[in-house]
Design a protein around this nucleic acid. Structure first.
Length: 901
RNA sequence: GCGGACGUGGUGGAACGGUAGACACACAGGACUUAAAAUCCUGAGUUCGAAAGAGCGUGUGGGUUCGAGUCCCACCGUCCGCACCA
């Protein structure tokens, strides 16, 4: 191992720079801690020591800590700083607790921005991406993260995506990847298809363009085959935020219902169509049915349109209806009577009209419903508009059947069945079962008329993208053989270097030679698939690849079994559905194709998830209406008189709302500037302070400056102690005086609290614990006798240990200053002496009728009667009782006394 | 519309049902300094009071409890997710 240069501390015992006589009660001039300079030193020491490189060490418990890897957009931003600071605190802390920690980093390196850059600046997407990676790697290194850089991966490298192509071939072979023609979301700006998850409010998640519907043949992953498992296993993710689990559950959208086939009256039905299948979750309300409705694209609608011009027009109108929220909300519930009549399943003499309705979705259920106006608001609105019957079938609890009536508000909850013949008097649930049972037994056209069916809202994941900068889909289209997978020996299918980006459309498709190849099966001329994979595929298994990033196979199963699942995953809430659902699916699909098996009884990739809040900042608007960078303004006054002035013009600028840092609002702070000025530790410390990690944090200059002051303060405290008590190998005295004991108690208590806080990812509380301890330690300095030497050095080393995960450079510097010629990064978290955590004397509050009147200092082990007696003697208690007799005294040992009188 | 989260000083926020406001930022006063910065000390929820002390205080209104920021119900407000899902 390379010898470490640990002698770089600012000061050493015997250094000439400080005064020889120290008085700890008065301030003294101390050399300031030069963060930017010392941080480089320690980063170098860690790197040459290769101490963050992980290997499968069976002698220790493993801990896989992962933060969502960044897209190499060019520069890191404050959101990255916060995310990676949090992950690093946890990773470093776990190291001190004896875990074998894997903490890797890589690049989500495929994607549109690189292609946009190619179009705008005529740089190849690969060149642009790798240049960005180099810049950002340097920035991340300057943060002093405990990352294993030997495992770095970039998804745009064939070293990575060739394995993804192998995974694809196996998914294809297993039927999990398949091709179908369907309506897809088309992003007219990015010229590509989007998955449902990637359409937000009717717009593309990246481009913001209004998404159009197009009919295209595309590649899909059969995530719906896993819908049930993905939903069910959410319950096992007890260390995930409740919110994320709920969002995924809603997105998967499981509903239990029935498929019911309705016989169509042959006199009215289109040729060769004798029945209509609907999906319903409420077979119990069948007697409240007053119409059936189908989507405009439903085969019955199409058939009926053939000789009905008006109906055809109506269907066209429905198809043209926009997909944006505004349009959907504005659209009224409208329908068109096809003239077709259907027979009620429980009454051959009851016929219902079949409408085409604009609110029925072809791709949910069967694209057809029966409408029960009394039990569904949407059906109610429709019925009122077309004057269809409204028959109440559910009597709400507490209502009288004789008087119960519905106006224009449907009753959608449970109750007791009414107007429902054989179902009358049953509960909603029993009626469901009864109706379902009868429909299952009833035969229509040789088959049971009803079948129970679980339905999901989740759709299959469309992964085809008509773009260049993505993982090529390894198949060939042959005129004779159809879709033929590329032979594994021919992988990787790499992207051509000489693509052009001067016009919109798919550069792979228009490349003169790339797509031409012989058919792998028959060797005749054929064409490669020119679509590439959605970049979310890349990020769906990168955490697996990190466990053996240089493996010749996609996954080294032994390494994956050792490391997976990820013990703590940290990232943004914005991936609650997309990335986190896809990754959960992929873990299962990879295990079903034999690539992955977990050591424990789970198929979940991320055992614990934490979603951190965003970084926000004030916004500044110039008089001319353009946004200003924080560095473009200076401030005058404070509090309510605080005003911003545009530096360049000297004119006042408006201080706007606090918002997420964004390029468009220019409320940005560059991490490089902060690190160069205050140091990485300062940026990290501030990011961890004050705001709970799951909430947004407001970046303020004052806050950073405060963090910077605290760094100097820690340095001074440690420096003072090292100066006064330079002996690093002191023996523990047998006895401690009161002052030393107090310091020791504070130190052990703080160590305990900080450890617990970090363990629970409550970094703001950990920071407060450290502050509190620093206050105690500082005010205790200078007191005490010879026993203080040990206590103070112990306290100082505890202080250094507990800031270690959060401000690792400062901690190393302090550690060296204390004279330990070792890297703190390799030191264990000290063990707490439990007896020091409990006090002999406790202060307990004394209440009278629940109101605090005084407090009592009493032995921790005092008997209840003694506590009660002492409390009743207190003068404020007697006064508060105002002579009333004491009815009862509640004593909670070591906590509180409540006198009831 | 449906689902969910959250409402605590000037600010960010602490608080196993048990002394609300820890800790920090900002502020004010003082010490040091020729001065500033830095540092150190002190103060501070609010009302009344010179003080001791007392009243009121965790969005609003109820409830459970010896005791509620915390649990339950209703309402108001803010934010987030989904959105014709049958």
């Amino acid at each position: 191992m390379t010898p470490l240069n640990l002698s770089g501390s600012l000061r050493r015992p015997g250094s000439k720079t400080g005064p020889t006589k120290r008085d700890f009660t008065t301030p003294m001039s101390t050399e300031r801690y030069n963060a930017p300079e010392r941080e480089k030193h320690w980063q170098h020491a860690w790197e040459t020591g290769r101490i963050f490189e992980a290997s499968e060490d069976e002698s220790k418990p493993k801990c896989y800590v992962l933060e969502m890897f960044p897209y190499p957009s060019g520069r890191i931003h404050m959101g990255h700083v916060r995310n990676y600071a949090m992950g690093d605190v946890f990773a470093r802390y776990k190291r001190t607790k004896g875990f074998n920690v894997l903490h890797p980093m890589g690049w989500d390196a495929f994607g549109m921005p690189a292609e946009n850059a190619a179009m705008e600046r005529k740089v190849h997407p690969g060149k642009w991406t790798y240049a960005n990676i180099d810049t950002m790697r340097g920035q991340l290194k300057s943060m002093g993260l405990s990352l294993d850089w030997s495992r770095e991966i970039a998804t745009c490298s064939p070293d990575y995506y060739q394995h993804q192509q192998k995974l694809f071939l196996d998914l294809l072979n297993k039927g999990i990847a398949y091709r179908k023609s369907s309506k897809v979301n088309w992003d007219p700006v990015d010229h590509t298809v989007l998955a449902n998850e990637q359409v937000i409010d009717g717009r593309g998640w990246r481009s913001g363009a209004l998404v159009e519907q197009r009919e295209l043949t595309q590649w899909f992953f059969k995530i719906t085959d896993y819908a049930d498992e993905l939903l069910r296993d959410l319950d096992t993710l007890t260390n995930w935020p409740e919110k994320v689990r709920l969002m995924q559950a809603n997105w998967i959208g499981r509903s239990e219902g029935m498929l019911i086939r309705w016989a169509l009256d042959s006199k009215t039905a289109p040729k060769n169509i004798s029945e209509l299948e609907v999906y319903t979750t409420r077979p119990d309300t069948l007697f409240g049915a007053s119409f059936l409705a189908v989507a405009a694209d439903h085969p019955i609608a199409r058939a009926a349109s053939e000789n009905n011009v008006k109906l055809a027009e109506f269907c066209d109108e429905c198809r043209r209806m926009g997909t944006s929220v505004a349009e959907i909300e504005a659209a009224e519930k409208r329908g068109f009577d096809t003239g077709i009549r259907a027979t009620h399943p429980f009454d051959p003499n009851w016929q219902l009209p079949v409408y085409v309705a604009n609110f029925i979705l072809m791709d949910y259920g069967t694209g057809a419903i029966f409408g029960c106006p009394s039990g569904d608001q949407r059906d109610m609105d429709f019925a009122r508009r077309y004057e269809l019957p409204v028959v109440p079938v559910i009597l709400p609890p507490g209502e009288d059947a004789a008087t119960f009536a519905l106006k224009n508000k449907a009753y959608e909850d449970d109750g007791v069945m009414m107007n429902s013949r054989f179902l009358d008097g049953l509960s909603t649930q029993t009626a469901f079962e009864e109706a379902a049972m009868r429909l299952e037994e009833q035969i229509l056209n040789g088959k049971p008329q009803g079948a129970r069916k679980v339905n999901f809202r989740l759709r299959d994941w469309g992964i085809s993208r008509q773009r260049y900068w993505g993982c090529p889909i390894p198949v060939v289209h042959c005129a004779d053989c159809g879709v033929v997978p590329v032979a594994e020996t021919d992988l990787p299918i790499t992207l051509p270097e000489d693509a052009t980006f001067d016009k919109p459309g798919n550069p792979l498709d228009r490349h003169p030679t790339w797509k031409h190849c012989p058919c792998p099966k028959c060797a005749k001329p054929a064409q490669r698939e020119t679509d590439t994979m959605d970049t979310f595929v890349d990020s769906s298994w990168y955490f697996v690849r990190f466990t053996a990033p240089k493996s010749q196979k996609p996954v080294d199963k032994k390494a994956a079994q050792y490391w997976l699942p990820v013990d703590q995953y940290i990232g943004g809430i914005e991936h609650a559905i997309l990335h986190l659902l896809y990754s959960r699916f992929f873990a299962r699909a990879m295990s079903d194709t034999g690539h992955l098996s977990f050591a424990t009884n789970t198929r979940e990739p991320f055992a614990a998830l934490f979603t951190q809040g965003m970084v926000t900042h004030e916004t500044y608007l110039s008089q001319d209406g353009y946004w200003l960078l924080p560095t473009d303004v200076r401030f005058e006054g404070d509090g309510s008189t605080r005003k911003a002035v545009e530096i360049a013009t000297g004119r006042p600028a408006a201080i706007g709302s606090i918002e997420k840092m964004s390029k468009s609002k220019k409320n940005l702070v560059d991490p490089d500037d902060i690190i160069a000025h205050y140091g990485a530790d300062c940026a990290r410390w501030f990011m961890l302070s004050d705001s709970p990690p799951e909430r947004d944090v407001i970046w303020t200059e004052a806050g950073v400056a405060g963090a910077g002051r605290f760094i100097q303060r820690v340095w001074r405290i440690v420096d003072d102690i090292a100066e006064k008590y330079p002996d690093a190998s002191l023996k523990r005295p047998a006895e401690f005086g009161a002052d030393a004991l107090e310091v020791r108690k504070a130190a052990h208590r703080a160590l305990d609290q900080v450890g617990r806080s970090i363990e629970a990812l409550r970094f703001n509380v950990a920071v407060a614990n450290v502050h509190e301890f620093a206050n105690v330690l500082q005010s205790a300095l200078g007191k005490g006798g010879p026993d203080m030497a040990y206590a103070a050095r112990e306290a100082a080393s505890f202080l250094v240990t507990m800031i270690g995960p959060m401000m690792p450079h400062l901690a190393e510097e302090c550690w060296a200053r204390l004279g330990y010629n070792r890297l703190l990064a390799n030191e264990p978290w000290p063990s707490v002496e439990a007896p020091l955590l409990v006090d002999d004397q406790v202060t307990i509050a004394v209440q009278v009728n629940g109101k605090r009147r005084d407090e009592l200092v009493i032995s921790r082990t005092a008997k209840t009667e003694d506590v009660e007696a002492a409390a009743l003697k207190l003068e404020p208690v007697i006064r508060a009782l105002e002579g009333r007799p004491v009815k009862k005294v509640i004593v909670v040992p070591q906590r509180i006394v409540n006198v009831v009188g």
